[in-house]
Write a protein that binds this DNA or RNA. Structure first.
Lengths: 196, 196
DNA sequence: GCAAATATATACCAATCGGTATAATTATTT
DNA sequence: AAATAATTATACCGATTGGTATATATTTGC
């Protein structure tokens, strides 16, 4: 890894939490130079503009979260277990700390949907990828005989799980009450158990 | 209503959709003068600062949404009917248009939770008020014999309904697919029906 | 309808915004 | 180790940020 590549990575790692907390328009170039200890010359030598830093930061935050979930999902042998990894991990406070500032999809979606089409598209792609993954787990669970085949609307179930998680993150971040999140994760658990 | 009061109201009405779409830090004073056709002197003659305009705009957006729901809720004679008003109204596109830019609680919460304690507090109060209202409907429904008393965690049910709605709004605004929202509202309906 | 009070417009402020040209420095290659 | 290439710092750019002092209109109470 060249010096430039290491610096680029360093900038991404340092700014990712800032973008996730303050948002795209709330994060300034001076925030970026301040947190990294670098100058504008260095930032603009490694990135085209603020947009590129924001996009890289978003991707970094998403990957960090996905990796944390993948590690837990891979441990599970059943598809029900894999699905339950989501509410299980979100019931713990640690997960909220993986990406400082809450869920990057939620944050980026609500900020960019009416203002920043490029970021919006990245958030949308990530959401759809997540949805497809959940659908795939349900389908595989049906094929494996874990879940009852009929009377399952896979798309709706996947959307319901995601909506509960995202809504739950919003609520618990707003109230500062982690109990709210684990309470809602109980409902996610129930949705998954009803697939049987 | 004095001239000043009318102007103040005019500013609020005009800027409310802007704040809801672009957010607090994304909306500039020039956005405000542009949309109202007024000058800075006029804005600052009626409001202390940008914060005050944002807070007034938030309150206006919330009230507009609450009024739309109250109208529907008041029509219903049963408590189940009152609760079902939420998924029913959100299944229609019209509701999304009442407050341009989506749910003001969601937008304000995700932007302000790490950055703007004053706006955060307003969003939190609104959320808690909403939760208490749902809990009250469930409690009254139990007292009226509509819902089965035991095995209902009212707090959890209320949080689940809100999380589904907020998550659903986020998803459908991100994908641009209204089907996603009505799909998730089906799950809200199910949660309410399970109270019986 | 005239004064006093109020509201709006104009012109300005320092600070900060994102971004760039160029100079100085540091890695890398030979 | 020298030459070259790549990276980072400095100094600056015009535009825009939120906000204010003051002058000019416009309401309002009498």
């Amino acid at each position: 890894m060249s010096k430039a590549e290491r610096t680029k990575q360093f900038i991404i790692e340092q700014t990712a939490p800032i973008f996730n907390m303050k948002g795209y328009s709330g994060t300034s170039m001076s925030d970026i130079t301040e947190i990294t200890g670098l100058t504008k010359g260095s930032i603009y030598g490694n990135f085209e503009n603020k947009d590129e830093v924001a996009i890289a930061a978003f991707k970094y935050n998403v990957k960090k979260l996905q990796d944390a979930f993948s590690r837990e999902i891979d441990k599970q042998t059943t598809f029900k277990g894999k699905l339950l990894a989501y509410p299980q991990l979100y019931s713990q406070y640690a997960t909220m700390k993986v990406t400082k500032g809450g869920c990057p999809i939620l944050n980026t979606a609500t900020e960019s949907d009416d203002t920043h089409p490029v970021l919006r598209k990245y958030a949308e792609r990530t959401l759809i990828y997540w949805k497809e993954k959940i659908i795939s787990f349900i389908d595989q669970g049906i094929a494996a005989g874990e879940f009852k085949a009929k009377a399952i609307d896979t798309e709706r179930t996947a959307l319901t799980i995601i909506a509960l998680i995202e809504g739950g993150v919003m609520i618990s971040k707003l109230t500062g009450n982690l109990n709210d999140l684990s309470n809602i994760m109980q409902s996610v658990k129930k949705v998954i158990e009803e697939l049987e």
